[in-house]
């Protein structure tokens, strides 16, 4: 499945790089807010669910090669983080649902 299909199914809103979504394949999912933890555990092509929308989250997404970040519970994306996401082709999406709710929906796909 691609990020674009995922975004449509889960009714997610794009905060960056919508143009990259159709080509980005996803595989698996990881939830977490502690960046070191995420960095050591998230796998390439995972969907990453978090409430951390700062510039360092984008750094972690780049290093781990996750497919996209979904900011849950309407957690904000900082302006400088948005800039860095665009620069580095990191797709960021947002939803009002909790990480638990989104993960539960993903597991049914």
């Amino acid at each position: 499945m691609t990020v674009k299909e995922l975004a449509k199914k889960l009714d997610l809103t794009y905060l960056s790089c919508e143009d990259k979504a159709a080509k980005r394949e996803i595989n698996g999912c990881y939830c977490g807010d502690l960046l070191s933890w995420v960095m050591s555990k998230a796998k390439e092509d995972n969907i990453w669910l978090t409430v951390m929308g700062n510039i360092n989250s984008i750094g972690v997404a780049v290093l781990t090669d996750v497919a996209c970040i979904i900011l849950t519970e309407n957690a904000p994306l900082d302006d400088n983080a948005k800039e860095k996401a665009t620069e580095n082709d990191v797709i960021v999406l947002t939803t009002s649902k909790t990480s638990y709710q989104v993960a539960a929906e993903i597991s049914k796909l």
Binding site: D33, L34, L35, S36, W37, M52, N54, N56, S57
Partner: peptide, 8 residues
């Protein structure tokens, strides 16, 4: 900021 987990 999501750091300081002592995992570094």
């Amino acid at each position: 900021l999501g750091f300081g987990a002592g995992m570094g």
